[in-house]
Structure formats: C-alpha cells, structure tokens
Amino acid sequence: MAPSSKPRRRFDGFATFWGAPALIWQTAFFLVPLGLLVAMTFWAVKSYRLTPDFTARNWERMFTRDYFWTGYLYTFELAALVAVLASVIAFPAAHYLAFRASPRARRIAIFLLVTPFFTSYLVRIYSWKIILSTEGVLNVMFGWLGLGPFEMLNNAFGATIGYLTLCLPLTVMIQYFALSNIDRSLIGAAHNLGCGPLRTTVSVTIPAAKIGLILAATFAFILTFGDYVSPAYLGGGTPPTLSILIVDQTKSGNHWPRASVVAVTMVFTLITVLFAALFAAYGRPGAKK
C-alpha cells in the first residue's frame, strides 16, 4: 500500500542543533532586553529612584516636547543623508573593485577596508577633531590658499564626517559583494545591445545589484541613526540626536524610563525602515507597468 502522500514535518535534529545557539543568543540578549526596555517605559522615577509602575506619563512627556521631535527629525535626516552620501561615495570604489581591479588590488583593498575596524571608533573620531578643528590641518591648508577658516566641528558637517567614517568601509564592502555577484553576461549583453559604460551602470548594473545596494544604504542608515560618538564629539551635541537625548535623560535626573521611551522609539523606527528597505529590495519590479 502506498503511504499517504501528504508531506509531514519531521523533527530535524541536525538543523535544530545548529540553529539553537543563535536562537538562544537572540532570545537572551535581544528579545528579553527589548521586553525589559518596553516595560521600563511605563515605570516612574520618584525622587531620583527608579520605581516599577504602569504609567503612560513618560510617553506623554516625551511625545509632547518639541525638543524630542526636533531631535527625532534631525537624527532621521542625518541618517538618511548619510545613507545616500555613503552609497554615492562608496559606489565608484565598489564598482572599481568588482569590475576593474586586478585580483591582487582587490585583496589589498579588502584588507584596507577591514583595517579601520582594528582601531577604536572613538580614536578615529578624535583624530578627525585634530583635522577638522579651527586650527586643524585642513584649515591651515585652506589658510595657505587664503581661504577659511571654516567651521567644520560642532555642526552637522562634523557629525556627517564622523558618520561616514563609521559606515563607509562597510558600505563599500556590501556594495562590492553585491556587484561582484552580478552575472557578467548581463553586463556583456548590455554592451552588446548598445549601452556604453554609464548607461550600462544605470540600466543594468544598479538594477541587477539592487538588493545589495539597498542593504548597504540601510546599514549606513542604521549605524548612523543609533550612533552617539559622532554627534557628541564632532557634531557638538546641538541639536541633540536621539542617542544624545538618551544620555541626557539618564544623566539629568536619572530618568531611565524616558530614555527607554527614546530607545524604543528608535528601535521601532529602525524596524520600520528595515522592513521598508527589504520591501523595496525584494519587491517585484516587473509587476509595475
């Protein structure tokens, strides 16, 4: 007799074994803290003491303050700007690595892209301070040309330089992997059908690498959105970004619940942005007319 043809889900011990550590890690160090974080937004602070409670006051308080929304908008705009800037600056480098560079040049470049991660991000940001300050290297050189001095610290420009320091190497690498996975015959076909290098890039290379390019930009956005070091040390902290707001809330008045409100808002913003990016990346372009 033929057995029932209905497929049955079987317990796969092998897959479970390999999947378990990641699952346990994610539960213990991401889901549980996130739950605690959400719970804390409903707690109260009574005479500088954190007290379990169930009140909407912290949400009310933050969401009705202009400085919160100013900070939110500023952080979001900076992150979006950096995502675009990083993508645009990274693309020529990634394109060169994927299509033009010799295997040797490629190996060296990838090594160099990893080395920034060897040194502390904080140290790299401090070195930018030396370069960008009013008496810094850049302004001295501008002085020779009879220009400046330019204000490059304690503003959005300084923060942006810091953000790019943080996310450019990763953006280049993700873009490079995306580009090098493109089927080369597609590039050949584009040339064959009349596209010069620029038209090929616009009409074939970028659409073919779309998923990776969007992921690269998303990474830049996520890193920037949550970063504290660049806005604090190069951006001067005004207007405050959400990360600075969090620190402010904890420092002045030990207000962890309000800091949690900011943090939870950030987490949900990033989840929304990530889903939007994934939808944009994996959506069905052919379905459009």
């Binding site: 015959s185 597609l186 050949g188 779309k210 372009p285 052919g286």
Partner: peptide, 11 residues
C-alpha cells in the same frame, strides 16, 4: 547567449 543573459529585473 548560451545562458540567455536576460535581464532578470525586467519583464
């Protein structure tokens, strides 16, 4: 082309 080299992101 042997692999057709059709653009997968187009109809």
């Amino acid at each position: 082309w042997q692999s057709y080299a059709l653009f997968p992101f187009m109809t």
